[in-house]
């Protein structure tokens, strides 16, 4: 039984509970009524998830049961060896780095980790990295560059942590340095936005040759709540801000910010984590197959051009 339902999933919850109740009392699954109800549930899920508003998508992107990086780490790769630390200050648990095997590829993997359960979440600082997290990520990327391994990053953060220590240790500098170095890193980089792509904290590991995004993930310059509290001094106007910010995958595809939308199973990634991870795995393998065929100088040039071309301006005569 699922534990957590979003507000707009209430009808789905009721239906699922009814079905569960019915199943308890019936000896056979072949009851016509039950089958009818399951069909209806499937239809409800499909309809609900096909027509999500940007705000609802933001909620799904942060769903407590949505697969997070550690799920991908454990199930997407054939094996994984974690490496720790930025060699300067400490190991930031909000970013996990390591070596992994994916099919025929050996790669360096970097992911923002929100954590599971209260204790782990606190340990991971809810997936909000400190500067040393970004520096660890950069160190891993430099290793990848040195040994010719592709880099796979997984974006899932509300943002870089806005605290005192982060400021003391140069949060801005750490992010800037990553953008600077990633733009010319001499190896393949694929970034996948699996949940929340929170501003600079997301971009700092997403200057990539391919940027993929799950259907119900978001990627934005600012969270809808913060945007609302700046614009209207009212964080509860998040739904309106989510609409205005155009932070959903189809919008980002239009702007050329992402390359591909990875469809989630019906009812969202949190209903079928394994299937979601399999979808991501398949997509990563396909993109790796394409990228390794491109020479590194060409790849770096194309990466530069990609980011060089982003932005919309008017030129007056």
């Amino acid at each position: 039984m699922r534990k957590y339902y979003l507000e707009f999933e209430k009808p789905i919850q009721m239906m699922e509970e009814k079905i569960a109740e019915l199943k308890k009392h019936l000896d056979s699954d072949f009851s016509v009524e039950l089958r009818e109800m399951e069909r209806k549930l499937q239809y409800m899920l499909e309809m609900t998830y096909k027509n999500l508003t940007p705000w609802q998508i933001s909620l799904v992107a942060r769903h407590p049961e949505r697969p997070i990086f550690s799920d991908y780490r454990d199930k997407l790769f054939d094996d994984f060896l974690e490496i720790h630390g930025d060699r300067n200050f400490r190991d930031d648990p909000a970013i996990i780095t390591g070596f992994a095997t994916l099919g025929n590829y050996r790669c360096v993997v970097i992911g923002e980790e929100k954590g599971k359960g209260t204790k782990d979440k606190l340990y991971r600082n809810f997936g909000m990295p400190q500067p040393e997290g970004y520096r660890k990520a950069l160190r891993a990327m430099k290793l990848a560059e040195k040994f010719g391994l592709p880099v796979l990053t997984f974006v899932d953060t509300a943002g870089a942590y806005p605290g005192m220590e982060g400021e003391e240790r140069g949060q801005g500098e750490a992010i800037a340095r990553n953008l600077f170095e990633m733009s010319a890193l001499k190896t393949q980089i694929i970034a996948t936005v699996i949940g929340e792509g929170g501003s600079g904290g997301a971009l700092a590991i997403a200057v990539a040759d391919r940027v993929l995004m799950l259907e119900n993930a978001i990627y934005s310059v600012i969270s809808p709540e913060s945007c609302a509290s700046i614009l209207w001094r009212d964080a509860s106007k998040g739904p309106r801000a989510a609409e205005a910010l155009k932070l959903t995958a189809p919008e980002l595809l239009k702007f050329g910010v992402i390359d591909e939308i990875l469809p989630e199973p019906i009812g969202g990634a949190h209903r079928q984590p394994e299937e979601t991870i399999a979808i991501v795995r398949k997509a990563l393998l396909r993109h790796l197959d394409e990228l390794v065929r491109i020479s590194i100088p060409k790849l770096v040039q194309a990466r530069y051009q990609r980011f060089r071309g982003l932005g919309v301006v008017q030129v007056q005569d």
């Binding site: 953008l179 600077f180 733009s183 501003s199 200057v207 310059v221 614009l231 530069y304 980011f307 932005g311």
Partner: peptide
């Protein structure tokens, strides 16, 4: 923020140009 994600991308764009 009025230009949303495209504003964010300016960070990557300027940094990439500085790298070159």
């Amino acid at each position: 923020m009025h230009e949303g994600i495209l504003s964010l991308m300016q960070m990557a764009k300027t940094s990439a140009a500085l790298k070159r």
